[in-house]
Design a protein around this nucleic acid. Structure first.
Lengths: 336, 336
DNA sequence: CGAATCTTCTAGAACGGTCTAGGGCTGCGG
DNA sequence: CCGCAGCCCTAGACCGTTCTAGAAGATTCG
């Protein structure tokens, strides 16, 4: 209170006030063994009273383990913000810190990782956009969230595209659909996986003859409109249902269909993927496949902590099961 | 090369290799005065050869000025990513570092700032979401990007909503419109500013009698649909043009109108705000007001550097002029 | 009752930089 | 030839932590 408010409270301040050494305060703050219950409580009291917060920089400098997780993110959307939210929560719970680095147009993966390196991270979480070959793999624990990557030293936390697509196709089949097309999402890793998953799901129902992949060329609304037009102009009869690469494409397609006087879900059913805000909008109200970002984030942090502690976790890939969120964009096949 | 690759290259490594003291290397790396041209070149050469990168933590610990800008962001969308992109570029140019902190559902402003504080930032940039009272103001230089705030010690970089709205209304008036409604964006600071700006712009054209603010309640597509329905159900005759709080609302409104068989721009013209990707989508192709995120970011960093250097900049607010991007969602008023 | 062990605490050296004070050189005027 | 700048450079303290080694005091045990 009487101090210069500009200067932050340090370990030494707490130690002086409590009449102990800085080392002891350090022990207590880290919740490490080697302090009596009595002094633990007293020191924590003083620390709280003074509003002490440890300096991450000094802490990570001094300790071999900085307990800092670097996070690479890009394409920030709702889903990614929720992942971040989950990461923050999980990291804080474990006493770790997060250092974020954004991937932008003029800032590639290498630059982003380098700048994180300046902070001496000791683990890396990659939220995307998907790249086939993660940097830093092998040097520190790396967890990739949301897509699959083939690397012996990279952990993966993702939602099962296979299962998600199967849910979507199952749902449509149970509504009587069989001419089910797929609006794909371009050449990305996730798009590939979902495309393959669509094919498998169709085959599982004996519908290989009905397999129809409509190219969009990308994964945003613009691409969705392009795909929808391709679907319409193909000349042949329209499918009775469509499962899209994601909600953006599904929603964009729906609006193109609406412009052509084609009613959803009466004339055609549409399913999205990711259950984003878009899907939840009343005017769109899209049946979609739901991922669980917070859970994914928690598992990613858990895995990092385990690797850092030297735990010998055998499996590299954690696959979560998605859920189906039914809304009004899907309905029974129309009697013709 | 022969070293343990796990260990990072330090100042001492460079110094040893170059046969000088660490202090001299430090001088050279900081580009500070006090080293001869000859040794400067030699040391830089060695540093590059060894792949030396200074440790941000140690650097900021040791120096009073850490040269770290804390960045608060939330609602990450295209616009915010571009702001980040600009911040990275401008900061790097000046030798500063960025420390990001995200605002999420379960992580409020205070938490986000506290975690940044642990990194000992010496300036703060707030990208949103808009809050009326910025934390940390007065302790370190604070720059708010994108909205206005009343605080004697906070710098502001924003685009002129007044000018933007004037551009939109001017454009519509020049096309012959007079019944121009505004789809507002809820209770946020920016929404208020744009609402007021709309009113002023209408008054400037002697159209106060035509002022019509349609409530949406918020600023995303969901709210836009709500607003469009309110517009339609109001009973009275439809306006011939609408200027929306942002592109999301405009696009959502357009799709609702389309569903009702109302053609854009034949029956009604629509203008958005922000010129986001959405506005640029072919199927939407929305006339919109364009902000310049990279320029805003650059100015924010510039201002921070100035404040840190103790420059006595009098004006607190930098207001950029937006531009009008005309696309196909606006057209001449229909002859009735 | 003295030695061994455990618990609790502390001194002091890192960590990788910055920065102040001062020590050699050189060149120049007196 | 000496004194005095001025330029380059270095030694060493310091930033706020962690961590190792070891010192006191309490406790157990032979």
């Amino acid at each position: 209170m009487t101090e210069d408010p500009r200067r932050r409270v340090t370990l030494a301040d707490v130690a002086r006030r409590a009449g102990v050494s800085t080392a002891l305060v350090s022990v207590v703050m880290r919740d490490a063994p080697g302090a009596s219950q009595a002094s633990r409580e007293r020191i924590l009291g003083v620390a709280k009273e003074l509003g002490y917060r440890p300096d991450v920089r000094a802490r990570s400098l001094a300790s071999l383990k900085a307990h800092v997780i670097g996070v690479l993110f890009g394409k920030a959307g709702r889903f990614h913000l929720e992942l971040l939210d989950g990461l923050y929560a999980a990291a804080e719970e474990r006493g770790w810190d997060l250092a974020l680095s954004a991937l932008t147009d003029s800032r590639d993966e290498k630059q982003a990782v380098d700048s994180l390196r300046d902070f001496r991270l000791d683990a890396l979480v990659m939220l995307g956009p998907p790249v086939p070959e993660p940097l830093l793999a092998g040097q520190v624990p790396v967890v990739v969230v949301g897509w699959h990557v083939d690397h012996p030293e990279v952990d993966i936390v993702r939602t099962s595209d296979e299962h998600g697509m199967a849910l979507a196709v199952d749902h449509l089949v149970s509504l009587g659909h069989s001419r089910i097309a797929h609006l794909e999402g371009g050449s990305g890793l996730v798009a590939q996986a979902r495309r393959d998953a669509y094919r498998s799901a169709m085959r599982a129902h004996g519908l290989e003859a009905q397999i129809r992949v409509v190219p969009c060329g990308g994964e945003d609304q613009l691409d969705g409109q392009r795909g929808a037009r391709a679907l319409l102009q193909a000349g042949s009869e329209l499918p009775t249902a469509v499962v899209a690469f994601n909600d953006d494409i599904a929603a964009a397609a729906m609006s193109v269909l609406a412009q052509q006087g084609i009613d959803v879900p009466r004339d055609i059913s549409v399913i999205g993927f990711d259950d984003s805000v878009l899907a939840q909008s009343p005017g769109i109200d899209l049946t979609s496949i739901r991922q669980v970002p917070r859970e994914m984030a928690r598992l990613a942090v858990e895995r990092i902590v385990a690797r850092t502690d030297g735990a010998d976790v055998a499996d590299r890939e954690i696959v979560l099961e998605p859920g189906l969120r039914v809304r009004t964009s899907t309905g029974p096949v129309r009697e013709s």
